[in-house]
Lab assay of single mutants.
Amino acid sequence: VTLFVALYDYEARTEDDLSFHKGEKFQILNSSEGDWWEARSLTTGETGYIPSNYAAPV
């Protein structure tokens, strides 16, 4: 399992994006889409796309 942590807060701009807060942890589901990764929040259980430059490996 690849775990990442949010470096900044992010507010979803589309219904496919995932809103999150700094410090929140994610499981990365798909990182082959370039700058946007499909991720599941370990806090909320929700799935959506996150900007890859807002996350770092745990």
Rank of each mutant, 00 (worst) to 15 (best):
residue 8 Y to R: 09
residue 33 E to I: 11
residue 35 D to G: 11
residue 37 W to V: 07
residue 50 I to S: 00
residue 37 W to I: 08
residue 13 R to W: 08
residue 31 S to E: 09
residue 29 L to V: 08
residue 58 V to I: 13
residue 54 Y to E: 02
residue 53 N to K: 13
residue 43 T to D: 12
residue 57 P to M: 08
residue 17 D to K: 15
residue 47 T to I: 14
residue 36 W to E: 04
residue 11 E to Q: 12
residue 2 T to C: 14
residue 32 S to C: 12
residue 20 F to P: 00
residue 52 S to H: 08
residue 41 S to Q: 05
residue 48 G to V: 03
residue 24 E to M: 05
residue 54 Y to M: 10
residue 29 L to W: 07
residue 40 R to E: 07
residue 17 D to S: 14
residue 13 R to N: 09
residue 31 S to Y: 13
residue 12 A to Q: 06
residue 19 S to I: 02
residue 21 H to S: 14
residue 16 D to I: 13
residue 31 S to K: 14
residue 11 E to G: 05
residue 21 H to Y: 11
residue 48 G to S: 01
residue 26 F to S: 00
residue 49 Y to N: 09
residue 46 E to L: 15
residue 35 D to N: 09
residue 56 A to Y: 09
residue 58 V to Q: 08
residue 24 E to D: 15
residue 24 E to K: 01
residue 43 T to H: 10
residue 36 W to S: 06
residue 17 D to V: 14
residue 16 D to C: 15
residue 35 D to W: 08
residue 39 A to T: 04
residue 49 Y to G: 02
residue 52 S to Y: 10
residue 22 K to S: 06
residue 12 A to I: 01
residue 12 A to L: 02
residue 54 Y to A: 15
residue 2 T to F: 11
residue 19 S to Q: 04
residue 4 F to M: 10
residue 29 L to P: 05
residue 6 A to D: 00
residue 8 Y to S: 06
residue 18 L to M: 14
residue 23 G to Y: 05
residue 19 S to C: 05
residue 28 I to K: 03
residue 34 G to F: 09
residue 24 E to R: 00
residue 24 E to Y: 04
residue 22 K to R: 10
residue 51 P to W: 07
residue 56 A to S: 10
residue 38 E to I: 15
residue 19 S to G: 07
residue 33 E to S: 14
residue 40 R to K: 14
residue 37 W to N: 01
residue 58 V to Y: 13
residue 40 R to S: 06
residue 21 H to D: 06
residue 57 P to I: 08
residue 38 E to S: 07
residue 58 V to P: 05
residue 26 F to K: 00
residue 42 L to M: 12
residue 35 D to H: 09
residue 6 A to I: 03
residue 4 F to Y: 15
residue 47 T to H: 08
residue 49 Y to I: 09
residue 44 T to M: 01
residue 45 G to S: 05
residue 47 T to K: 10
residue 13 R to K: 13
residue 10 Y to A: 01
residue 28 I to W: 01
residue 54 Y to I: 06
residue 45 G to R: 03
residue 22 K to F: 06
residue 7 L to N: 03
residue 26 F to A: 00
residue 42 L to I: 10
residue 50 I to L: 04
residue 14 T to R: 14
residue 56 A to R: 08
residue 23 G to I: 02
residue 19 S to K: 04
residue 43 T to A: 11
residue 34 G to N: 13
residue 45 G to L: 07
residue 1 V to C: 14
residue 28 I to F: 03
residue 35 D to S: 09
residue 20 F to C: 04
residue 1 V to W: 14
residue 32 S to I: 12
residue 39 A to K: 00
residue 41 S to Y: 03
residue 30 N to Y: 07
residue 56 A to D: 06
residue 44 T to P: 00
residue 40 R to L: 14
residue 13 R to G: 08
residue 46 E to Q: 14
residue 11 E to R: 08
residue 14 T to W: 13
residue 25 K to V: 15
residue 21 H to K: 15
residue 22 K to A: 12
residue 4 F to L: 07
residue 3 L to S: 07
residue 7 L to Q: 05
residue 33 E to K: 14
residue 7 L to D: 02
residue 39 A to I: 06
residue 38 E to P: 05
residue 16 D to L: 14
residue 44 T to R: 03
residue 52 S to T: 07
residue 21 H to Q: 12
residue 17 D to I: 11
residue 50 I to Y: 02
residue 41 S to H: 08
residue 52 S to C: 10
residue 31 S to N: 13
residue 39 A to P: 00
residue 51 P to D: 05
residue 37 W to L: 12
residue 20 F to V: 04
residue 18 L to V: 04
residue 35 D to T: 09
residue 45 G to P: 00
residue 47 T to R: 10
residue 42 L to C: 15
residue 43 T to R: 12
residue 23 G to K: 00
residue 20 F to G: 09
residue 3 L to M: 11
residue 25 K to F: 15
residue 47 T to V: 15
residue 31 S to T: 14
residue 53 N to M: 11
residue 58 V to E: 09
residue 14 T to I: 06
residue 16 D to M: 15
residue 45 G to F: 08
residue 7 L to T: 05
residue 27 Q to H: 13
residue 49 Y to S: 06
residue 58 V to D: 10
residue 55 A to E: 02
residue 54 Y to F: 11
residue 55 A to S: 06
residue 52 S to P: 07
residue 30 N to I: 07
residue 46 E to C: 12
residue 57 P to A: 09
residue 33 E to W: 11
residue 34 G to H: 11
residue 28 I to C: 05
residue 50 I to V: 06
residue 46 E to G: 07
residue 24 E to A: 05
residue 26 F to V: 02
residue 9 D to I: 02
residue 14 T to C: 15
residue 33 E to T: 12
residue 27 Q to K: 07
residue 32 S to A: 12
residue 57 P to K: 07
residue 12 A to C: 06
residue 9 D to A: 06
residue 5 V to W: 06
residue 28 I to M: 06
residue 8 Y to K: 07
residue 55 A to V: 15
residue 23 G to M: 02
residue 42 L to Y: 07
residue 46 E to T: 08
residue 13 R to E: 10
residue 54 Y to D: 02
residue 53 N to L: 10
residue 12 A to M: 03
residue 43 T to S: 12
residue 58 V to S: 08
residue 57 P to R: 05
residue 21 H to I: 12
residue 6 A to V: 04
residue 12 A to P: 05
residue 20 F to W: 01
residue 10 Y to M: 02
residue 15 E to C: 10
residue 29 L to I: 12
residue 45 G to E: 04
residue 58 V to T: 08
residue 2 T to P: 11
residue 47 T to D: 04
residue 29 L to C: 10
residue 7 L to S: 03
residue 34 G to Y: 09
residue 52 S to L: 06
residue 7 L to Y: 03
residue 29 L to R: 04
residue 22 K to C: 08
residue 40 R to F: 11
residue 15 E to D: 13
residue 32 S to T: 13
residue 55 A to I: 15
residue 33 E to D: 15
residue 58 V to C: 10
residue 32 S to W: 11
residue 23 G to E: 03
residue 49 Y to C: 10
residue 33 E to Q: 14
residue 41 S to T: 04
residue 21 H to A: 12
residue 33 E to R: 15
residue 16 D to Q: 14
residue 7 L to P: 02
residue 23 G to Q: 02
residue 44 T to Q: 01
residue 11 E to M: 11
residue 26 F to R: 00
residue 11 E to C: 12
residue 7 L to C: 09
residue 18 L to Y: 05
residue 51 P to G: 03
residue 58 V to F: 11
residue 46 E to H: 12
residue 49 Y to L: 15
residue 17 D to G: 15
residue 44 T to C: 04
residue 39 A to N: 01
residue 47 T to G: 04
residue 57 P to H: 06
residue 11 E to N: 10
residue 28 I to T: 01
residue 8 Y to C: 11
residue 58 V to G: 05
residue 19 S to N: 06
residue 23 G to V: 01
residue 31 S to M: 15
residue 14 T to H: 14
residue 55 A to D: 02
residue 8 Y to E: 07
residue 3 L to H: 10
residue 58 V to A: 10
residue 52 S to K: 14
residue 48 G to I: 03
residue 39 A to G: 05
residue 37 W to D: 01
residue 15 E to T: 12
